[in-house]
Simulated assay, not measured.
Amino acid sequence: MNRRILVSLLALGLSILQGCATYTTPAAGVNMAALGDGDISALMSLEPAVQFPARLATVRVQSSGYHSLTADSYGSGQFSVVTTRDIESADDLQRLASQDQLSAVAPMTRLILPQELNTLRDLRLGAARLKADLLLVYTLDTSFNVESTALGPLSAITLGFLPNKQAFVSATTSALLVDVRTGFVYGAAEATERESQRATVWNSREAIDSARQRAEAQSFHSFVGEFERLWQATLAEHLTVVEPEPVAPPAPRPTPEPTLTPSLPPVLDPTPGTYTF
């Protein structure tokens, strides 16, 4: 009898532990405005220096200490870098690389980045090691909502006790296109997508994180379309088209002077006393 009671208590304890398990929402994205130089005069003095066709480096940044079930981050300071491609599909990356006047596209890795990351200049140094002309810096900001309740970054969601209400994950991809040499910002792009479902489906960490991944992947996919528009606007403003030098038509060849046939001397007739002309 005591053994049965002990087994029952253990089963009850396991069910309580499972019901009290939590999912911690990932840290927030990065405020892009905080990455640059805050001095207005310095910002106004920046000039573009890109030469087309250009080489593009890409990097995803998140807040310091970012972690999810599918990716970790590198670096300390004001932000960190995520080098794992967990939400960027191969098709979307191929679309980025296939833009006009792009000779090469390369992701940045931790091998070329400093440990301390505080400003865009730290990222530009890494891009310069890749001999890149331009740097695409992007971040994902993801929020979790259950009906009207917003769950911010690093919030603990208790599994098994969510109400039977509508829940959704909203993800926004924001990016800057930066000149590696000068820090000049060519423009910004942004896209937001939402993944909705019933909150009762969020019965495990994997289920909630799967909703996050779908929302972030859809957001990045939409962002690629926004980047294409930004890139075309950048080319329209900064691509210098060199017109070919006009080729002069060949000079007409001079008309040759007519050749006069010289008159021949009279032929002497062998017959004595007569001449033939």
Results as ranks from 00 to 15, higher is better:
residue 93 L to M: 13
residue 58 T to N: 00
residue 162 L to T: 03
residue 107 P to D: 07
residue 76 S to E: 12
residue 89 S to R: 09
residue 141 D to G: 10
residue 74 Y to W: 07
residue 141 D to I: 03
residue 67 H to W: 06
residue 115 Q to L: 10
residue 88 E to R: 11
residue 100 D to Q: 15
residue 133 D to M: 12
residue 167 A to K: 03
residue 60 R to F: 01
residue 73 S to C: 02
residue 87 I to Q: 06
residue 86 D to G: 08
residue 154 L to E: 14
residue 96 L to E: 10
residue 165 K to S: 10
residue 117 L to H: 03
residue 91 D to P: 00
residue 156 A to P: 12
residue 110 R to F: 02
residue 115 Q to N: 07
residue 125 L to A: 04
residue 140 L to V: 09
residue 142 T to F: 08
residue 145 N to P: 00
residue 116 E to S: 09
residue 71 A to Q: 04
residue 77 G to F: 07
residue 154 L to C: 03
residue 143 S to Q: 14
residue 74 Y to C: 00
residue 156 A to V: 10
residue 77 G to S: 05
residue 63 S to P: 03
residue 70 T to V: 07
residue 146 V to G: 03
residue 135 L to A: 04
residue 118 N to M: 08
residue 85 R to E: 12
residue 89 S to P: 08
residue 79 F to H: 06
residue 155 S to Y: 15
residue 165 K to Y: 02
residue 76 S to W: 12
residue 156 A to L: 14
residue 69 L to H: 02
residue 67 H to S: 13
residue 60 R to P: 00
residue 88 E to A: 11
residue 118 N to E: 08
residue 149 T to I: 05
residue 70 T to D: 02
residue 163 P to M: 02
residue 82 V to D: 05
residue 97 A to P: 13
residue 137 V to M: 09
residue 59 V to L: 01
residue 104 A to L: 12
residue 58 T to W: 00
residue 94 Q to P: 00
residue 83 T to K: 06
residue 150 A to Q: 14
residue 83 T to R: 06
residue 80 S to Y: 02
residue 160 G to R: 03
residue 166 Q to L: 05
residue 93 L to H: 00
residue 93 L to A: 05
residue 86 D to R: 09
residue 85 R to S: 11
residue 68 S to C: 05
residue 151 L to D: 10
residue 118 N to R: 14
residue 99 Q to A: 13
residue 67 H to N: 08
residue 168 F to M: 01
residue 92 D to P: 01
residue 165 K to Q: 13
residue 100 D to T: 11
residue 107 P to Q: 01
residue 115 Q to F: 07
residue 124 R to P: 04
residue 82 V to H: 08
residue 160 G to P: 05
residue 153 P to Q: 13
residue 103 S to Y: 08
residue 114 P to A: 03
residue 113 L to Y: 06
residue 89 S to K: 10
residue 134 L to R: 11
residue 141 D to Y: 12
residue 138 Y to E: 06
residue 120 L to S: 10
residue 163 P to R: 02
residue 97 A to G: 14
residue 144 F to I: 02
residue 117 L to P: 03
residue 135 L to N: 12
residue 130 L to R: 12
residue 73 S to N: 02
residue 125 L to F: 14
residue 147 E to A: 14
residue 74 Y to G: 00
residue 93 L to W: 10
residue 92 D to H: 03
residue 79 F to K: 09
residue 137 V to A: 02
residue 112 I to V: 13
residue 106 A to I: 14
residue 101 Q to L: 13
residue 93 L to R: 08
residue 132 A to Y: 15
residue 71 A to H: 04
residue 136 L to K: 04
residue 76 S to L: 11
residue 76 S to D: 12
residue 87 I to P: 02
residue 167 A to R: 09
residue 79 F to S: 06
residue 136 L to M: 10
residue 92 D to I: 06
residue 146 V to H: 05
residue 159 L to V: 02
residue 74 Y to D: 04
residue 158 T to I: 12
residue 148 S to M: 13
residue 150 A to L: 14
residue 166 Q to M: 03
residue 58 T to M: 05
residue 111 L to Q: 11
residue 60 R to G: 00
residue 126 G to K: 12
residue 133 D to I: 13
residue 118 N to V: 05
residue 107 P to I: 01
residue 101 Q to H: 15
residue 101 Q to G: 09
residue 140 L to I: 11
residue 119 T to P: 00
residue 98 S to E: 15
residue 77 G to D: 05
residue 142 T to I: 13
residue 111 L to H: 08
